[in-house]
Amino acid sequence: MTYLSAVPLQAGLLDGVFGPFYWFLNYWSEVMSWVAGQTGLEILQYGFMHRAILVGLCIGVMAPLIGTFLVHRQLALIGDALAHTGFAGVAVGLFLNAVLELGVSPYLTAVVVSMIAALFIELISEATDAYNDVSMAIVLSTGFALGTVLISINAGGLAVGVNQFLFGNLATVSQDSAAILLLLFVIVIGVVGLTRNQLLYVTFDETAAAVSGLSVSWYNRIMVLLTAMVVVGAMQIMGVILVAAMLVVPVAGASQVSRSFNESILVSVVLAELAVILGIGVSYYAEATAGGVIVLLAVAIYVAAVVLGKLQAASGEEDTPEMGSIDVSDAKPSDD
């Protein structure tokens, strides 16, 4: 039903929502063309590369941002599971487009299906009191199986276009899908910005967060929904199979070298952007698939971070500060 109503939606209401993003995309493209003119960089001369770079930059911010909260809750696998259900969503979109001749972007259906799956995983885990890798694995394979079946039913026409979803593709980032990604980006950044305290508390110490009056299950639901958005957004370039790496690898690298939580988020974003920008460049000139190159670079950066972290620990073995005594006198100075 959602998909049926998506036709008038996309034509009418959604155009209003996406309008500013299309405007921004055009503006961004002009800026990039100007840069290309000034520098003579061949890579910056094409419209699709402008979009790919912008999409990459957004992924480089939001994937490690969400990934930081997931990794430190031992939930790294959930990104993978949601990407594979996102693939089912893509298949649903392609299927509906072929059968009913709807003009829906498969990424839009992917977001919807992936978010439903995210809520489903979360509700299962609330009912059973644990995230477990078995139920996650079941959701993952169900999603992928559903995707392949839907696609094979319609074979012929459909099978052709599947590679871009599985492995990602710089050249196929359309105006529409770039606009969808920008919308997802704004939502993700906005929600995390608003609830950063709560998400941090729930991530670090769920019990204490619950005692302090936070509804842990609501913040968990928000978290998995955001994860679904990020994963589907990042799928365009990274592909279903490699998208989870962007949630995990930069975060793992950052926790090797960072001391504070805020620092670790910042560092993970920097590492991810490094991998994305270098990766897009390398894959363009080497004519290799971008998702794979980006992930390989991210892993290389991770290894470098591990080495750096070990060196830091070895050389900078900080002098242990004197631990103060527990001071009874200023226990509660602010009252009275």
Partner: peptide
């Protein structure tokens, strides 16, 4: 109860 590996001061 709290996370043991998280980078946090």
């Amino acid at each position: 109860s709290a996370s043991k590996e998280m980078p946090i001061t």
